[in-house]
Design a protein around this nucleic acid. Structure first.
Lengths: 338, 338
DNA sequence: TTGAAAGCGCTAACAA
DNA sequence: TTGTTAGCGCTTTCAA
């Protein structure tokens, strides 16, 4: 590449020469400054500034066997993910947390099976020190393969089927759903329906569980409609619900995007929200304030979740030890829809 | 890290030993297989399979001085970016295009000034072979610094102030805006207002230009309201427009998100869309089909744009030569709002 | 077509 | 506290 030829970067040797010390001393300064005299430290610092030295990560990785890089793996089979606002928040927070510790983030999208194989192969190849797993589905082969390969991983949300073996950071989906359902009851609603997320994903499953915790296990089947987190699935589910149970007076959707879809269907049918039917979402994502009426929803602290995931992952990488999974509480955000 | 100790990966030496050839030969096989006899090729391939060999990128980078990695830089000062659906599409397409060529993508967010400095430092350090620049603002120091450092870059959208020196791939913002404005005129609309994007960004500026191309340079100032691509700014701009020019019968927003904001304001004021005022957006993003009515908008081919950006960047990296910027046409997508 | 050998920039063990 | 030294795994001359 052209630019390489023009001027090559200073190495640790250049710094050592300028500072009048050995490479070893410069290296020590680079790695925490232990066992370095104040005088040496000063002159090395000066020399680094003067030469514009920047460490060569490849060289370092070669000997430390650490890449200084972790992967952000979106194990999402659908393109659907890209309409999910949560993804943006997570990636931003993770990038930020990682940047502070001078670790890089490589984004990998494991959409179709081909992608997945490539991603697994890549992660197994020690190109990254670990991985943040987002949007996992139960029985996802990615999880078992990475685990078998000994790749440090932390999942976002309970990794269904691996709750005990793969560390995760999650929102309290079940508790949040419970709170929301109770809130709707508190509003005097008596026929509360729900639109679920994919039931092979922790958010989908647990939010339904929370709903059932309150409504009761033997809830009428017509009060439950399945969605896949997409807007369209919310529209469809709402239609189904309305057709099967015209008497419902509230609906709890497992995501804001689906709640927005439900809102669209209700408007088309001329049903007043919250007058006739109260609508509640989950996530407190951007879309919640762009709908009309704005959505009452459960906020999950995604920034904190992402930050904690990073913390756990780096801990596993550094110590090689297991870490404790964590669950963060959700909070009710009241707006106009319920 | 624990897993390293358990079993270390086979190296090129192991492969050479198993294949009964020298390291050099294995390396040649790895790099295209030139000057390797069929027999040697066969036994090396077998040995690679047998040992489960995977190249160590750090070692390779150390000698080739190529990282096999490019950065995706979001030069966005606001968190606003994360409500922009375009970002998702771009990153997905870029990841995909890069994956096919076995190049990794490192995501870097240059939000606040501190971030920016860190990102520039990082890119200058040869950690990546080049960068894809997204969401640049005119006078953005990131551009000049990277250019000065000789880092291969390709921008998304015209890099204002560097149109001639930094290669870019853009949608035909101006032509698209022109087409949309003419379309609104064709609908019989006579008082067409516009909500602009940030005027220090190519999309904001060019779409306003296109609008003026059709309406005329001496357009009434009250027909133009500035936004920043956010939903809220669309709401506000629409209010301002309505207050200053109650007689408008159409509004062209420079983004779908802002158009959605405008829709919210119009609904609140009880103004019919498209009955009283036609509303048009730009982007054809996901939000365009979640509003009520659905948005008429200009589609920009973001997948193609991202794919072409990747192509150009890799070409610069490989050849060290300059490449030609490209502009992709937009297409009108008619829906219910106009 | 092949092997031998040098060396990329760095860390880490060792000796001083 | 410091300098010296031996590699890390790979590519790339250079000779053969």
């Amino acid at each position: 590449m052209a630019r390489r030829a023009i001027r090559s970067r200073p190495t640790i040797n250049d710094v050592a020469a300028v500072a009048g010390v050995s490479r070893g001393t410069v290296s020590r300064v680079l790695n925490g400054g232990h066992y370095v005299s104040p005088a040496a430290l000063a002159s090395v610092s000066r020399a680094m500034l003067q030469t514009g030295y920047v460490v060569n990560r490849s060289a370092r990785s070669l000997v430390t066997k650490r890449s200084g890089c972790v992967a952000f793996v979106l194990a999402e089979p659908q393109e659907r993910l890209f309409e999910d606002p949560n993804f943006n928040v997570l990636i931003r927070a993770a990038t930020h947390a990682l940047a502070q510790r001078d670790v890089n983030l490589t984004l990998m999208i494991a959409g179709d099976p081909e992608d997945r194989a490539r991603v697994v192969r890549y992660l197994q190849s020690d190109h990254v020190d670990g991985a943040l797993l987002i949007s996992t589905h139960s029985g996802d082969a990615v999880m078992s393969e990475l685990q078998r390969a000994g790749v440090p991983i932390v999942a976002c949300g309970k990794p269904l089927g691996y709750e005990e073996t793969i560390p995760y950071v999650a929102a309290d989906d079940r508790g949040g759903a419970r709170d929301m359902t109770r809130y709707l009851q508190g509003l005097g609603r008596r026929r509360i329906a729900t639109i679920t997320g994919p039931l092979d994903m922790p958010g989908g499953l647990e939010r339904l569980e929370g709903y059932c915790d309150v409504i009761g296990r033997k809830v009428r089947r017509e009060l439950i409609a399945n969605g896949d987190y997409s807007f369209e699935s919310g529209e469809r589910a709402m239609s189904t619900l309305l057709d099967n149970s015209p008497d419902i007076d509230a609906v709890f959707a497992a995501s804001d995007v689906m709640a927005a879809g439900a809102l669209a269907t209700l408007r088309r049918r001329g049903i007043a929200v919250p007058g006739d039917i109260a609508v509640a979402g989950f996530d407190d994502s951007r879309i919640a304030v762009t709908t009309d009426p704005q959505l009452t929803t459960m906020r999950q602290p995604l920034d904190e979740i992402a930050a904690h995931m990073v913390e756990l992952l780096l801990e596993i990488i550094d110590s090689g030890e297991d870490v404790k999974s964590a669950t963060f509480p959700t909070t009710l955000v009241k707006r106009a829809s319920a």
